[in-house]
């Protein structure tokens, strides 16, 4: 029930933007003409219509970066990276923007090739491979039970499918265990992180724009966030960060 109005709104904004584009140019043309705020508006409308397009998130990130909105740009690059982690351009721009925020794409102490391999597949792709291997394993096992005479040949294929199921399942599980369940990016120039969910609590530390944080819990207008790099956590106003969930 709630999905229908949201889709309608996205459709309306897309129609509106289509009308604007015909008068002012496409977002790409606006970007090329250095009208970055116009490009941001255009790509934002397109992203609302196609939230699972890595290219659109990437292009919106580029427009935001050029428009001086580092935090929001990193949020969009992160979404694009989550959708298509093998894309070299997305990887480059995310790393470039993170450096501006004082962070590295590859965490300190992690060999870059290991980080690349660990993020070779997107979360959805990993889940897809895991389920494909699961289907194959169970179907082959069923066939082996039904056709005892062919169980030997089927068994080898089944063992391979089972190994793939365990491999991709383990990979998927490791990603889920090691990565924050929900990530957010600081979008204010300096976000004040307090020791509790309210203005009455003292400011424990500040975080610069563009810093990626983990969302731990929520309390009204406040989010409890964690900074993995520094091992710190605290509460920040929800409008100081942009949450980067599953597109």
């Amino acid at each position: 029930m709630t999905r229908t109005p949201a889709l309608s709104a996205a459709g309306l904004s897309l129609l509106f933007w289509a009308a604007v584009c015909s008068a002012q140019g496409t977002p790409a043309e606006l970007y090329a003409a250095a009208d970055y705020s116009g490009a941001v508006a255009g790509y934002a409308a397109l992203v609302a219509d196609q939230p699972r397009s890595a290219s659109l998130h990437y292009n919106l990130g580029n427009s935001l970066f050029k428009d001086g909105q580092l935090g929001r740009a990193i949020a969009e690059y992160q979404r694009a990276f989550d959708l298509r982690p093998r894309d070299r351009d997305i990887r480059h721009n995310l790393g470039f923007a993170l450096k501006r925020a004082g962070e590295d794409l590859v965490p300190p102490g992690v060999p870059p090739f290991l980080h690349y391999l660990f993020h070779l597949l997107s979360g959805r792709e990993l889940a897809g491979l895991h389920w494909l291997a699961c289907w194959a394993t169970l179907i082959l096992a069923s066939a082996a039970l039904l056709r005892r005479s062919a169980a030997g040949a089927i068994g080898w294929w089944g063992a391979g499918a089972l190994a793939a199921w365990l491999f991709f399942g383990g990979w998927w599980g490791a990603r889920a265990a090691l990565e924050p369940s929900e990530r957010a990016v600081v979008i204010k120039a300096t976000a004040e992180i307090r020791s509790g969910p309210g203005d009455g609590f003292s400011v424990a530390f500040t975080a610069p724009e563009g810093r990626r944080v983990s969302v731990l819990s929520e309390n009204g207008r406040w989010l409890e966030i964690g900074l993995d790099l520094e091992g710190a956590k605290g509460w920040v106003l929800a409008d100081s960060v942009e949450r980067v969930g599953e597109p």
Partner: peptide, 27 residues
């Protein structure tokens, strides 16, 4: 930063895997 992506979309295999991942209760 690198320039915009004007016509790059995900591969058919990626789309297949994403569709499988989205199958929900069918699993």
């Amino acid at each position: 930063i690198r320039y915009l992506k004007l016509n790059a979309e995900s591969s058919a295999l990626s789309r297949l895997l994403e569709a499988v991942a989205s199958a929900g209760n069918a699993h």
